[in-house]
Nucleic acid binder design. Structure first.
Lengths: 207, 207
DNA sequence: AACTGTGAAATTATTCACAGCT
DNA sequence: AGCTGTGAATAATTTCACAGTT
């Protein structure tokens, strides 16, 4: 069956909602919908893509549902992550507290600035970019976050692919080319602001 | 006419591509498609939502198209932006060089940490959060970036709405409630990693 | 009675394919 | 001849609505 990509995103949000609810109880699709802003039918359909977890007339067992979603998303295991580019944004992500609760740990960091190499931040020693491949192979790292400037982003992505990385969260404002078995998720901060500017322009026109 | 939200996102990417091309020439939908990874029909349809800019047998005038897209997105004007929460991520965004070329300028920053208030970063003096409403009103700021911890995010968003902000880029891992004339774009970094983990889990199963 | 799971219908988005302009 | 603009066709996603289960 073909699962809409958007469903995965919603699943993450359902999971977040469940974290704020007492465990030892049931929750209905209606209640999840209310708390996340989606519709009840959508919640049920999304969950049904992956099996039948609900009990008619009661809803979903919260603790079970949490475990199930976590397993679907793959956040039931811990994932080690590599960070490439320890500039402002990279440092902020190193210090970001939101990753570990979801099972992600930035295990190693790389930069090409000699002044940074060898320094430790948040318990992670910054390594020279030339160490990238051996370290990633050794640590069996499959996920990387790219926060380098756009002019070296493609080069870094190529190195990551060669080092066996298959999932990349890219903050550089380019869309890197990768083999099709590698997943890239692009976050372009300026583009997000552009979308807001579009809405703003529209709504000001409407007045 | 109803314009798909995704079309706006693509428009931003077309624009980025055009920046890397000589001005005084034409470009075909096919060429734009090739450079952005979408299809030519999609490029033409997206542009056609907003008017007829192309010349049959030649393509689109690059300089004109750039101006046109910029106008559609609203990036032809400069936008002043407020930043709330000068933690690691907030500081990184303050220093981020990618906003200004697209017409966004972080004009003021707020925090509630007394040790930070009064300090200047990147030429922006950090103000006490109590100054938020008067400053935003005075500066007529409509766009805000929220990088506070999740437990105060809703409160901050409420303040922003009261101060007249109608577009919010939110990095706190909650979905704030806002009146329907306010647009919120949520970037949840952990959720993005969860999507990658999902792909990774799937592709490992396939082997 | 209450709530799930799911086909069918409706809606939304994308792709096709070609008439028409330069 | 080449490339746009766009209706029509197709595909994807969401919503509806209800049969079935507890």
């Amino acid at each position: 069956m073909k699962i809409p990509l958007a469903a995965i995103h919603r699943l993450s949000l359902y999971y977040r909602t469940l974290l704020g609810v007492r465990d030892d109880d049931f929750i209905s699709s209606d209640e999840i919908a209310k708390r996340t802003g989606f519709t009840a039918a959508q919640v049920r359909k999304d969950l049904a893509y992956f099996g039948q977890f609900g009990i008619p007339s009661k809803g979903y067992r919260i603790d079970e549902l949490k475990r199930t979603i976590s397993k679907i998303l793959g956040t039931d295991k811990a994932w080690d992550v590599a960070l490439i580019g320890v500039g402002n944004l990279g440092m902020a992500l190193l210090a970001y507290k939101g990753f570990e609760p979801q099972g992600f740990k930035i295990k190693c960091a790389f930069d090409n600035d000699l002044r940074k190499i060898g320094r430790a931040l948040e318990g992670v020693v910054i390594q020279d970019i030339s160490e990238l491949k051996p370290t990633l192979k050794k640590e069996k790292i499959r996920i990387a976050i790219v926060t380098v400037r756009s002019d070296s982003a493609q080069e870094v992505v190529d190195m990551l692919v060669k080092a066996g990385v298959t999932a990349i969260l890219n903050f550089a404002p380019i869309r890197p080319r990768v083999p099709k078995d590698v997943d890239v998720l692009n976050i372009d901060l300026a583009i997000e602001l552009e979308r807001l500017a579009y809405f703003l322009t529209r709504s000001e026109k409407r007045r």
